[in-house]
Design a protein around this nucleic acid. Structure first.
Lengths: 108, 108
DNA sequence: TTCATTGTTCCATGTTGATGGAACGAAAAG
DNA sequence: CTTTTCGTTCCATCAACATGGAACAATGAA
């Protein structure tokens, strides 16, 4: 397990990978949950899914520049990089997060 | 050939299919070109690609609610549904179109 | 040390979707 | 009517990616 993750710098975040990362139902659910919870680890967002799947989705989101993972002991806390994303693509995440259901759905 | 296309009503345009439609390099190129040209038919935007591929991409964009196709004789004129998209997802297309290169690239 | 927890990595499987040739269909021109 | 143009539809192929089980690694607790 690599304790340190690579988080792309703001200028290295590009639109197409970002859109690709968001354009998945599971990952969009993760984004909505993170937006609601502020911070969450992988296990918290498992909804009956295997860890390997979720770990994969977190990796995609991380490499797209959408979330930041902070390691604290065993747990990896994930947060949205909203400030960076807003600076890089003004209005994009805002318009996406506006579509997040207020009451989080089951399949998120 | 169905002379009439189905264009989803604004309330039937949903985020995930829209994101999926945009999250493709060819289709993102089509969007940028349409934004630049205002209106274009399929053949105009072929960049050495087969028509069947482009027709497929236009269909995806159309069904996602991103563009409108107006049939005029043999030619099918396509335009972005910017007003509808802005009403449905304020700021989304704006932030995406901001990323379009000013000088249109070859592989668009 | 031993065990439990957390998350990753590896790998195989399955599915989705992009690609592109070919045939077809509709409209307009010759 | 014949031909050309424009775009779709059909179909097969291929690549990318989501899925999920298993083993592993790292930390913390017993």
């Amino acid at each position: 397990m690599a304790a340190l993750y690579h988080h792309p710098a703001p200028e290295d975040i590009t639109l197409l990978p970002l859109l690709r990362a968001v354009a998945d139902p599971v990952r969009l659910g993760i984004i909505c949950h993170l937006h609601s919870l502020g911070e969450a680890n992988c296990t918290t967002l498992l909804r009956g899914r295997p860890k390997s799947s979720m770990s994969h989705h977190f990796q995609v989101l991380r490499e797209a520049g959408i979330l930041h993972t902070r390691v604290e002991g065993v747990q990896h806390h994930n947060t949205l990089r909203l400030d960076v994303l807003e600076e890089r693509f003004p209005g994009l995440m805002t318009s996406i997060l506006r579509e997040c259901p207020t009451s989080l759905p089951e399949n998120g």
